[in-house]
Design a protein around this nucleic acid. Structure first.
Length: 109
DNA sequence: TTTATGGCTGTCA
DNA sequence: ATGACAGCCATAA
């Protein structure tokens, strides 16, 4: 009932649910977290990840199906490596067939 | 309290 | 297909 969790916690919860070998967009995560339209906040939430974050943040990409160029220059390269390790075939543009690897959670999960 | 920023998204050229 | 612009809104200072 009194869900006092911050929006970040919801986002983290959703990201945690992303299965391996699958990816989700910020907008998608935001929507699943109950924050439709707050895609950016998702990014900030991940940026504000706590030290005990065990979240597969690397499975969260932008709507273009590519990793987002964030503040840290090598981070996108690192993220790509993580996704490749999960079976996501990247092409020469740091992108991949999003619709084929897009995580499709059930609405009534 | 206000101001500034931002790991985005969607539309238009 | 890629590039550019504006809009949404929460968090941090």
């Amino acid at each position: 009932m009194k869900e006092r969790e911050s929006n970040y916690d919801r986002i983290y919860a959703v990201v945690k649910r992303i299965p391996k070998g699958r990816v989700a967009t910020y907008g998608q995560v935001a929507k699943l977290a109950g924050l439709p339209g707050h895609a950016r906040q998702v990014g900030y939430a991940l940026h504000a990840l706590p030290e005990n974050h065990r979240l597969p943040w690397h499975r969260v990409v932008n709507a273009k199906g590519e990793v987002s160029p964030r503040s840290y220059p090598f981070a996108e390269d690192m993220q790509r490596a993580f996704l490749e390790a999960e079976g996501i075939p990247f092409d020469g543009r740091n992108r991949f067939p999003l619709e084929e690897y897009r995580w499709r959670p059930r609405k009534a999960l």
